[in-house]
């Protein structure tokens, strides 16, 4: 928080004014229009405040100050997939088709997941590995346990 202040003139908290006005039972259209004009003027007079704030941030950072505020959006938080059920009245066949299509989309997205987790050291990687030979074909697992730190272990 800034310790000093700069002259900013008299400011009207338009949010409060608008809220109060809209809360009145008897308010004329004319009054609303007048307020709209006033607010538009006030907003217009400020120019591009977001850009100005970004410039301030940059200038403060250049001078070794802390980047306390930033208008630019930060990194997006990790997503979690939620299947939101909406109570839409449909027949059973339609519901089945929706479920099938949703499932297909979900499976397709899952199929693209690649965390690279097979290439990191794990608790097992710290130990000498037991390697299994590939090329067994069919549905038989060809390898057992691999990691960057643990490859090339003892064949079993």
């Amino acid at each position: 928080m800034a310790t000093g202040g700069f002259p900013t003139g008299v400011g009207i908290l338009y949010g409060v004014v608008i809220s109060e006005l809209l809360g009145r039972e008897s308010v004329s259209v004319r009054e609303l229009e007048t307020l709209r004009e006033q607010v538009r003027d006030a907003v217009g007079a400020q120019g591009d405040l977001v850009a100005a704030l970004n410039s301030l941030d940059a200038a403060i950072a250049q001078r070794g100050g802390g980047a306390e505020t930033s208008v630019a959006p930060g990194p997006r938080p990790p997503h979690r997939y939620w299947h939101i059920g909406t109570a839409v009245p449909v027949d059973a066949q339609t519901a089945d088709r929706i479920a099938e299509r949703l499932k297909a989309v979900v499976m397709d997205e899952i199929a693209r997941i690649d965390t690279g987790g097979d290439l990191v050291a794990t608790p097992l990687a710290a130990k000498e590995f037991w390697g299994f030979q590939p090329g067994l074909g069919g549905s038989v697992a060809g390898f057992f346990i691999s990691s960057a730190a643990g490859s090339g272990g003892l064949p079993v």
């Binding site: 899952i110 997941i113 965390t115 690279g116 987790g117 097979d118 990191v120 050291a121 794990t122 990687a125 069919g138 549905s139 038989v140 697992a141 057992f144 990691s147």
Partner: peptide
């Protein structure tokens, strides 16, 4: 078998995470 191949009809039972 919990360590099978990716083949139609098999079951997807887990996803390898970034920590291995």
């Amino acid at each position: 078998c919990p360590s099978a191949r990716c083949a139609p009809g098999n079951l997807l039972i887990g996803i390898v995470q970034g920590d291995g």
